[in-house]
Design a binder for these strands. Structure first.
Length: 154
DNA sequence: GCCAACGTTGGC
DNA sequence: GCCAACGTTGGC
């Protein structure tokens, strides 16, 4: 089966694509997702899936490159740690509500595809990212991915 | 910093 | 199980 394509948001102040690149081949645990829809998408991810990286809450929101899924969903230990800002009192070792995947850096684009471009594009303006703006992880169709790649090379 | 959108919580 | 209140996200 062909790899699926996803879009993962991150705030560059917190964790940017440069930080992901710096992690090298060990990758980064994509922790702190506390939204059920986003979590469910993570649980559908397979090794080798493409993870577009979108920078949000910054000067120019944009898709800035992509990574690859190198570890499928596993329990998020931060949910069980009262010291963590991602602690969830409703989770327990036997019933951890939250999961995460590991993402490895693949490529940073010299020409990011901006939110403005997406919003004005006939196909990309229909993306889940745009339609459901607060969702931090969303699926991307093969057709949408083609259009995104065309824009970053244009 | 404002505020619209919207997911989650909790009282009933 | 409804829905008002609340909290968070994220573009502008």
């Amino acid at each position: 089966m062909a790899a699926s394509i996803w879009l993962l948001k991150s705030e560059p102040n917190e964790f940017s694509i440069d930080d992901l690149q710096a992690r090298g081949k060990q990758g980064e645990p994509w922790n702190g997702i506390r939204n059920f829809q986003a979590r469910n998408f993570m649980r559908e991810m397979s090794i080798g899936d493409i993870a577009l990286i979108y920078h949000s809450a910054c000067k120019t929101p944009a898709i800035v490159g992509y990574g690859t899924v190198i570890q499928t969903a596993y329990p998020d230990a931060d949910a069980l740690n009262p010291q963590s800002k991602y602690y969830d009192e409703k989770s327990s070792a036997g019933n951890n509500r939250w999961s995460l995947v590991d993402i490895q850096f693949s490529e940073k684009w010299s020409k990011p595809v901006t939110l403005k471009q997406l919003k004005t594009h006939p196909i990309l303006s229909e993306m889940k990212l745009i339609k459901q703006s607060r969702l931090s992880i969303s699926p991307v169709t093969a057709a949408e991915f083609d259009e995104i790649l065309a824009l970053k090379d244009s």
